[in-house]
Simulated scan of single mutants.
Amino acid sequence: MNEIGSPVQSLPRPGRRLPPLLSLRAFEAAAAHLSFQRAALELSVTPSAISHQVRSLEDTLGQPLFRRLTRQLALTPAGQRLFDDLRTGFDVLEAGIDRLRRPPASQTVTLTTNAAFAARWVLPRMEAFRKACPGVELRLHASDTLVDLARGDADIAIRSGRGQWPGLLSRELMPERYAPLCSPMLGLKRVADLSKHQLIHCDWQPHALAPALWPRWFREAGIAQPKSPGGGAMRAPALSFSDESHAMLAALGGHGVALLSLTLSAPEIRSGALVQPFGPALDTGSYFVAVANGRENEAPLRAVWNWIVSQTTTGS
């Protein structure tokens, strides 16, 4: 543009002054093999056709490209220079065409998060992810063990906590709270009725800042631990799981009351398969998306980061 809104008139481009492509291909093949016969086999033509194309090229250039010896060909100095240039040019052209023929290479991003979040939040959204990030292959690392993003053990993480991790750039996604949840078939209404049902316990990792455990829940509820039907102290949890998804399945089956994530149990709460008979809900921090400092502008990581954030801001 020479002025705002005024397009520049493009100058006519002069045509390329090149010999016919067929003669150049014939010469390059013959020079590579130093044989019209083998060049003919490579290009699926006759030796006489190769000879004709090479002779035509020599006439066009006005100088010989081969010295024709008895049962042998040898390149002239001009022929050698042209062969070197053509070989380089054809190699570049072939590589460019090959890149166009190949499908775009997928970019793999490893997302690490805990097993429950992977199963309950990430996997149900995979179709949305494929539509939003068609060029990214997501590798899901589901483990409650923290990995070192700075060392490259994974590319991006969704972690729960306070979001203050050295060497990581993080953004808060959503607060996390845990509350007593159970099947409506239990008919649970009052805290005192907890003594009639099993408490379902789920293990927490040692690094958890504020684990949602039953003793903590009773403390924050400001009530004494209910007595068992026989009058003694309530027995220890009768069901214990290392995975929150399994604890949820037990609660859905009516096997007791579990302290479960309100975020991860949202579909079951909406459908009525699980109910929260009473509070309080325990604050366990928030979910954060995190990457190692310095990697936040890598295109595939940025695409995954933006998709994760979009899924929390749109209420998906």
Rank of each mutant, 00 (worst) to 15 (best):
G5N: 06
R120M: 04
S245F: 02
Y178C: 10
L249F: 04
R130Y: 00
A281I: 06
I269V: 14
A132P: 04
R99Q: 15
S286C: 09
Y178M: 10
V8A: 15
Q72Y: 07
A258R: 07
L262V: 14
L194D: 07
R67F: 08
H246W: 05
A266E: 15
R99I: 10
E176Y: 01
A142M: 09
L173V: 12
E94F: 11
L260I: 14
A292K: 01
I308H: 11
A105G: 03
A212D: 11
G187D: 14
P175M: 07
M234G: 09
S56I: 03
A157Q: 03
V289W: 00
W204K: 03
E127S: 02
P20N: 04
T46F: 07
G294H: 02
I156D: 00
S183N: 10
M174L: 09
G187Y: 09
I4F: 08
M126G: 05
G253S: 04
L149A: 07
G187K: 11
A40V: 10
M248Y: 04
D155P: 00
A30T: 03
F129M: 10
S23W: 15
A74Q: 06
R16S: 08
S48A: 15
G285Q: 05
G79P: 00
S6L: 05
W217E: 05
Q198E: 15
G5D: 11
Q225D: 05
L282I: 12
T312N: 08
H197V: 13
Q37T: 15
E268V: 01
R159S: 09
G231D: 02
Q311F: 07
A212T: 08
I158H: 01
R162S: 15
V109C: 09
P103N: 09
P77G: 04
E268K: 06
E42L: 10
D155K: 00
Q311D: 04
A39Y: 11
